[in-house]
Amino acid sequence: MVRLIDKVGKVAMLASALLLASCSQTPDRGAQRTDFNIGWSIYAGWMPWPYAQQAGIVKKWADKYGIKINVVQVNDYVESINQYTAGKFDGVTVTNMDALTIPAAGGKDSSAIIVGDYSNGNDGILLRGADQMRAIKGQQVYLVELSVSHYLLARGLETAGLKPTDVKAVNTSDADIVGAFGSPQAKAVVAWNPQLSVMKNQPGVAQVFSSAQIPGEILDLMVVDTATLKANPNLGKALTGIWYETVSLMQRQDAQGRAARAAMAKLAGSTPESFESQLSTTHLYTDPKAAVSATSNPALIKTMTQVRNFSFSKGLFKGASSADAVGIAFPGGKTLGDPQRVTLRFDESFMKLAADGKL
């Protein structure tokens, strides 16, 4: 995992300049509104969102609170986060690390209102022609740089006694990664489902490390702009209602549940069988009480400490002098980093409303 620090600096400065330019043209996020846009990209744990829109569940909950919610697909995952950061979306599906290193590190105050799941094997490292992690040494590794794939690679290298300098990262978008790994020179890749399952089934390919070996460290979230949420709490209530109604439906083992999962598979471009396999490696928090417990657990602070220290070590905090530069707030008033510069908040209040039957 090699990324030159001077290159990171130049990319970060360019991204910051573009962000400032784009944000200057966005409406006041603290205003009361009735129309909202939520971005999503294809991943097993996020497929409930487009299905909910297709099935009328989004409209049902939006109507309940007198608002309109547009659920918008973005084919490239990192681009969906960039568009959220620039103000095009009011919320976005994102992992804990990427919420920290892109919007939060860029100064955009964001609230994680739904901890939907953690990857329990949905992210993995694949090698062609080898079945041991140590064989990755000296390889070019195709992955989405500055994403959780970076983090997974680092954790995998640790288990094999290897250093980041033992491999060379090749930045590849999630939309292009399957094609890139199909080239003859590609021997190593880090990816998430559904792309991971497609590549894992290729001849001579073995999975040598996965998120199942670090359970709870790669979280999948619904993150909403904090100012928008404060001015429009009904958006948080509607999104939470949508989520729990949909995941409750998809857990059912009757014909309706199977039909919902088959529809999600189709939306993801997968077969029902492949999608069921992806769900088996996704630890969904279907019970809001479990999600509240996980969000309030001190283990989350430990996880985010690991994530932010890794992110800072890779220069992902855009010129910050320490990992404390980006503040992270947790339930109960606990804060990691600078309490005066909190830009990522784990807000369990909406999940608690769901747990208490008060939505």
Rank of each mutant, 00 (worst) to 15 (best):
L20K: 13
L20H: 11
A21N: 05
S22D: 04
C23D: 09
Q25R: 14
T26R: 15
T26L: 15
D28K: 12
D28C: 11
D28Q: 02
G30K: 13
A31E: 10
A31C: 02
Q32E: 14
R33I: 04
D35Y: 13
D35C: 12
N37D: 12
G39R: 03
G39T: 00
I42N: 06
I42V: 14
Y43L: 12
G45H: 08
W46N: 11
P48E: 08
W49S: 03
W49D: 05
A52Y: 03
Q53C: 04
Q53P: 06
Q53G: 06
Q54D: 08
A55W: 07
A55I: 00
G56T: 08
V58T: 09
V58I: 12
A62W: 04
D63N: 09
D63P: 02
K64W: 03
Y65N: 01
G66R: 00
G66S: 04
K68W: 09
N70F: 06
N70G: 07
V71R: 05
V72P: 02
Q73W: 11
Q73Y: 08
V74N: 00
S80N: 10
I81G: 06
N82T: 13
N82W: 14
Q83D: 07
Y84L: 15
A86H: 03
G87P: 07
G87M: 12
K88A: 07
F89Y: 13
G91N: 06
T93K: 09
V94P: 06
V94G: 03
T95M: 13
N96S: 12
N96Y: 01
M97Y: 05
D98F: 13
L100P: 03
T101D: 08
P103S: 13
A104R: 06
A105Q: 04
A105R: 00
G107C: 09
K108P: 00
K108D: 03
D109A: 13
D109Y: 03
S110A: 15
S111H: 02
S111N: 07
I113V: 00
I113A: 02
D117A: 15
G121E: 09
G121L: 10
N122K: 09
D123E: 07
D123C: 10
G124E: 02
G124N: 07
I125Q: 02
I125F: 10
D131W: 11
D131H: 11
D131R: 12
D131V: 06
Q132N: 15
Q132S: 13
Q132K: 15
R134G: 07
I136L: 03
Q140E: 12
L143K: 08
V144T: 10
E145N: 08
E145S: 09
S147E: 02
S147P: 00
S149L: 07
S149Y: 04
L152Y: 01
L153M: 10
A154L: 10
R155A: 10
R155T: 03
G156F: 09
G156I: 04
L157M: 00
T159F: 13
T159H: 04
